[in-house]
Structure formats: structure tokens, C-alpha cells
């Protein structure tokens, strides 16, 4: 699956099906500080992601 990180860089993850919370954990991201879309749709971090999905992580904590 393709992961788009908050800084807009992308990573490829080959790991089968797993909860989005686990993906965040692997990238050292606290779920409280982000929201996530799966294939363009907002989903809770407890939703699952699969091989063909595009997961986008948007940081909500913002200075300014």
C-alpha cells in the first residue's frame, strides 16, 4: 500500500491487511495528532488498510 506522510513524502508498505493505527505506530505517529484518509475517504484509525490502498496521513496539530 502507498502511505502519504504529513510532509507529503510517500512510502510503500508491503504488509498485508492491518489496522491504520498500526501503520501510524510504525511511522512513530501519534493518532491523536493526525487524521487519516483511505483512498480519499476519512476513516477512524481503527479501520483496516490493505495492499492496494492509498493511506494519507494529515497532521492536525499546527503552529500559527
Amino acid at each position: 500500500m502507498q502511505i502519504i506522510l504529513p510532509d507529503r513524502s510517500t512510502r510503500q508498505l508491503d504488509c498485508g491487511t492491518l489496522p491504520i493505527e498500526e501503520i501510524l505506530h510504525r511511522f512513530g505517529i501519534n493518532p491523536v495528532s493526525v487524521i487519516v484518509t483511505r483512498n480519499g475517504r476519512l476513516v477512524p484509525e481503527t479501520a483496516y488498510a490493505e495492499e492496494d490502498d492509498e493511506i494519507r496521513i494529515i497532521r492536525v496539530a499546527h503552529g500559527g
Partner: peptide
């Protein structure tokens, strides 16, 4: 795969927990 809204009565896909 979708988690469902827990508001009653609703079964739409949840967007936030």
C-alpha cells in the same frame, strides 16, 4: 472494512472515533 457510526439509529461508515 468500514467501522460504523455508533449514533442511533445510524449505520453509515464512521469518519472519526
Amino acid at each position: 472494512r468500514d467501522v460504523r457510526c455508533t449514533s442511533t439509529p445510524c449505520s453509515e461508515p464512521a469518519v472519526i472515533r
